[in-house]
Design a protein around this nucleic acid. Structure first.
Lengths: 340, 340
DNA sequence: GCCTGGCACTCGCACGGACAGAGTGCCAAG
DNA sequence: CTTGGCACTCTGTCCGTGCGAGTGCCAGGC
């Protein structure tokens, strides 16, 4: 029925106008700025229905309408067209990300790029350890009874741990240990490394047994536990830009939640590389995020996902634009890390 | 002259009251809250002089007085007693920092600790590469013509670079190269490594020459250039706490400057482990920092400084408290990194 | 049956005047 | 040099008013 369709069109217009102007939008302004082909009065009727259904609301009795979380949700699910990036933006992505020297650099550039592209807070998760594979294990003796263990993954991530050994370590044993560990672990996915550790205890030559036991314990912690899924955050200055309206009172709780990382990390756990996931306002169970929206997606090659990235901003954000930017950046980063 | 001394006492009282209440302080309130032994009228006279000398100012004709940057400066230089940390705080430092597993973890904990202790934005510089020494160099072949170079410093910092070689690398050459590099560089201070690289070109066995040349070039970049003096920042949520008054309008420029890092890094270059450096408001040449104060100090062992750390906040901050916290944390971190 | 123009109504907000309170500067006296 | 007193100058607040935006509803037209 044309009737229902126009009503959705009205909702779309409201969202678009409100996002770009940050003012509650009234029936008259809507009729002027969009070719809806009907008069303000008709739009008012539609708005009344939309409000009854919970898609929009009015801040005060005599102000225009503002989308609710539910309204944004409908907009994102059914009303927003994919918004292709401009050629300039595509070029910016390449120019920005190429020439990164190591993983840290890639992620640092990514977060700055995303923040700049979307003018929101950007968040990038370090490649999750358990999904990567061991490329190399390095053992360095830093003192008589102290070894430094360095793990290099095929995503370029480096983890290090100091291992205190009960007895002094024979210098000659270190290269042996290194060879042993590498032949056992090279190429093994971190999530599956736990079994190997116990296997190694038995097959190791006798004179290395003690050492392997000690090192193995630390290795277990490092490999198996998803100990620190780190997060890189950037563009927090963007929060302070339109703040007054966007975040009621203060944005302190939001900043705290971002620094806390754990909340965002949990959300990142749900991402997947094929679809951009949008969480709007109250949909985020966590209180501090209830006034914010997240646009996230997984990155990685086709066969495995490495981690997630995305942006955080006020519910009043440019969803189509941000979704496009997030997806494009994730694709590029995925390729970059897959080939290295 | 007792006269002058009391005037300074008045300034101290003004700073203390203003810092704790965030309200311009008037003569009457001062007389009540502090035992200055004189009447409000006398204090008014002193205030008039202090204002003429530029130490305080009044926001409006009929409001109390507020310290100027110059006033804070005098306070910091001559009026503030060292404020020892409470036993609880000392314990918090130890409990918080012990149990860190690697360098990244140490710095992450440090920045959180400082932010929590001072309720300001905390900033910690990664140990500057040029002041550290090489502990180990690792070479890993990740593809036929591609090597991964991992540098481990004695401060526990790890740097990695991918090296693309023009020709395929013989697998047997990798261990040789590793041994060669380590015997040449182990223990060498990074700042002095440049000479070694050129020396190495000549002394290397003929079949490794080409490889050494390629790897050497990358090594030079990594070792000699103070490429990325990274910064860890935390507690930005503290900026949003008292914001309204503390930062005129928006704190966006300050957040941007912090993310930019370069401004703060330059300031960090001037620190030294023996004295806590305080920069107040306009003393920071940079515009974005003109409304903020920095309290910084170097950390490291007695014989060499590794980097700087500190806090950033509104000029209206608890200088003695922050100075004490910054110094105490720097000492502890210095010890921690020196022994590892 | 749906759209439209008209109209009365409701608020929020900006403006302006009045007022109280805080704080000062100055002066004359101790 | 200090002190109490006093007049003065502001700011912040409260209130009342008017305006404008926007709505909801109704009766008439396509």
């Amino acid at each position: 029925m044309a009737h229902d369709e126009r009503r959705l069109e009205v909702l779309r217009a409201i969202v678009q106008d409100f996002v770009s102007t940050n003012d509650p939008v009234g029936s008259k302004a809507l009729a002027e700025r969009h070719d809806l082909g009907v008069s303000p009065a008709t739009i008012r009727n539609d708005m009344a229905v939309l409000e009854e259904q919970g898609y929009i609301t009015q801040p005060h009795t005599s102000a225009g309408r503002v989308p609710t979380d539910k309204g944004y949700r409908l907009f994102v699910d059914r009303l927003s067209a994919v918004k292709p990036l401009s050629a300039a933006e595509r070029r910016a992505i390449e120019r920005f990300l190429d020439g990164a020297v190591d993983l840290h650099d890639v992620l640092g550039r990514t977060v700055r790029l995303l923040a700049q592209l979307t003018r929101q807070v950007a968040v990038v998760q370090y490649p999750t350890l358990s999904r990567s594979a061991v490329r190399h294990l390095e053992v360095v003796q830093v003192a008589a009874g102290r070894l430094l263990l360095v793990l290099i993954t095929d995503t370029g991530r480096v983890e290090q741990r100091v291992v205190d050994c009960p007895a002094d370590v024979d210098a000659g044993a270190v290269p042996e240990l290194r060879t042993l560990l590498n032949s056992a672990f090279a190429g093994v996915k971190l999530g599956e490394a736990g079994d190997k550790v116990s296997g190694l205890m038995e097959t190791a030559p006798p004179h290395l047994r003690g050492l392997v036991a000690t090192v193995g314990a630390t290795l277990m912690e490092t490999l198996v536990e998803p100990s620190e899924d780190r997060l890189v955050i950037g563009g927090t200055a963007n929060l302070a830009r339109g703040s007054a309206m966007d975040f009621p009172g203060t944005m302190q709780p939001l900043l705290e939640a971002l620094e806390e990382q754990v909340v965002v990390l949990r959300l990142m756990g749900e991402v997947d590389a094929s679809t951009v996931l949008v969480r709007i306002g109250e949909e985020n169970a966590h209180e501090a995020l209830s006034g914010a929206s997240l646009v996230t997606v997984g990155y990685g090659s086709a066969d495995r996902s490495l981690g997630g990235l995305g942006v955080v901003g006020p519910t009043r954000m440019d969803y189509p634009g941000n979704m496009a930017a997030v997806r494009a950046v994730a694709r590029y980063v995925g390729h970059l890390l897959a080939e290295s």
